[in-house]
Amino acid sequence: MPPHMQQKPLTKPMAIQLDSVAKKYGDHTVLNNVSLSVREGEVTAMIGPSGAGKSTLLRCINLLERPDTGCITVEGSQIDAGTNFTAKDLAALRRNVGMVFQSFNLFPHLNVLRNVSIAQERVLGRPRKEADARSMKLLERVGLADKAKQYPSRCSGGQQQRIAIARALALDPRVMLFDEPTSALDPEVGLEVLAVMKELAAEGMTMVVVTHEMQFARDVCDHLVVMANGSIIEEGDPERIFTNPVQPRTREFLRAVLER
């Protein structure tokens, strides 16, 4: 076992486990047999140069991207990407995973409240009243209860991303995936999204965050994963990696993002 693993409390069960996940687009290898473990309640940041495969790896966790080979386990639901799995297996795995996208992807034809309620009704079969009550609670939590009747287009980018977080949380996921949640936002606006994410982390949500927000990766995350060229080149305690990266490629990347 590599030394950094011992810093983690080993009692906590695994929330996410990826085993030798590989993906190719033609001749181009996007993910080169990547394995990753995330424990319950852990916040993992994935950083690295663009094209490293961070987003692809994240999207493999809920199979928005289907790997060519590899095994994915999330909260006990397992899918072997190399085999034929059923829609039921996929639904069971996704049932525990919420996702937040870089481009928000709110539904423009539904108002904010409906955006948060619709999947509760369709996936969990919650009655509309119950779903709306839950949605209002979540919108309050992200500070946007007053926007419930608005359409997403009337909300700022930061507000839209907070609504997207509420929408994902509405299904009571045990794991939340964030794909560059602040990259489409002004730096200042990004802060309000990061604040919501910090709160979520403090409450013990298991999170995997692909990000270029180095401060967030360093201060909020428990575990840091550095990717380059479709592989994880270094992982461990964020503070350790930020102050003393082992790999030259990590050092190069950190210098580029921190000393600018």
Binding site: N62, R95, P108, A119, V123
Partner: peptide, 24 residues
Amino acid sequence: GQWEAGEALGMGRPSVLTVIIGPQ
């Protein structure tokens, strides 16, 4: 992204088509 958002929320294809994609 609209399809993906529906999928990530665990909605089946019929649901995604009828409540998200269709109306748009």
